[in-house]
């Protein structure tokens, strides 16, 4: 298969619904914790090293062929916020639809049957990468990058931040993305023999708090 499949999967225009989610940025902006490029970078770095690492590891493990149902349960245990679990399943379902149309594969069909309301998005992403002939590190890169590009582009809209500044943030985080993708792929390799407990469980208290606060807002620009 083609390596360029990674570009298709990682493209922000891949029709998987991610643009409707801010990855916690909307709440952080409203609460005054993200006010510009510098705090956006700090937000994205923290997110990348916590929930981003977890998501990338789940995606890499799914790409390696670890049982997706076990990964989905591991994702639930690593996501205490019900609002974030709902968002992850909704995104998983939308990605599943796009992935099955793009790279038809019996393992995608089986996962869709098993989780009709949607599996956690990183698990679907990893399996989509597998269906596209990509490897675990590709899946980890894709997951890690979209985990920061989402909040960055959301912040452009929320704060009218200069898009050049937001892109600069993403470029400065590139070495962190490399490290996270590497760690995720290594952990996924261990999960093959040791089970899903070997996957990271890094958590971010303020993302959990913020997600529940955000879910209670009567009016919001982003779904999460």
């Amino acid at each position: 298969m083609s390596r360029a499949a990674l570009l298709v999967l990682a493209d922000g225009r891949f029709p998987a619904g991610g643009h409707a989610h801010s990855g916690g940025a909307e709440e952080a902006v409203k609460a005054g914790r993200v006010t510009g490029a510098a705090s956006l970078e700090d937000f994205c770095r923290g997110r990348l090293n916590t929930s981003g690492l977890v998501a990338a590891s789940l995606a890499a493990a799914a790409a390696l062929g670890v049982d997706p149902a076990a990964l989905d349960a591991a994702a639930d245990a690593r996501t205490p916020s019900p609002a974030l679990r709902v968002a992850a399943r909704r995104l998983g379902r939308q990605l599943m639809r796009a992935a099955r149309a793009t790279w038809p594969h019996p393992e995608l069909d089986a996962l869709a049957r098993r989780f009709p309301k949607g599996a956690h998005q990183p698990v679907v992403l990893g399996l989509a990468a597998r269906a596209a002939g990509l490897g675990p590190q590709d899946a980890a890169y894709c997951s890690a990058y979209e985990g920061i590009s989402g909040p960055a582009s959301a912040t452009v809209r929320l704060l009218s931040l200069d898009p050049f500044d937001a892109t600069g943030v993403l470029a400065r985080l590139a070495p962190d993305v490399d490290r996270v993708a590497l760690r995720a792929a290594e952990a996924a390799g261990r999960a093959v023999t040791e089970g899903v407990d070997a996957l990271p469980a890094a958590s971010a208290p303020l993302l959990e708090l913020g997600a529940e606060a955000h879910a209670g807002w009567p009016v919001r620009l982003f779904a999460s």
Binding site: G24, A28, R33, V34, S39, D42, F43, C44, R45, G46, R47, L48, N49, T50, L53, A73, A74, D76, A77, R78, P80, D176, V196, D197, P200, A201, A202, S203, A204, P205, L206, L207
Partner: peptide, 25 residues
């Protein structure tokens, strides 16, 4: 089956952003 799995990492040498707006602020 896993019910809860959470790891917190803080302080000098911890992965970046631990004291930032997404984690502890």
């Amino acid at each position: 089956s896993p019910l809860l799995d959470q790891e917190l990492a803080f302080g000098p040498g911890a992965p970046g952003g631990w004291d930032g707006p997404a984690v502890l602020a």
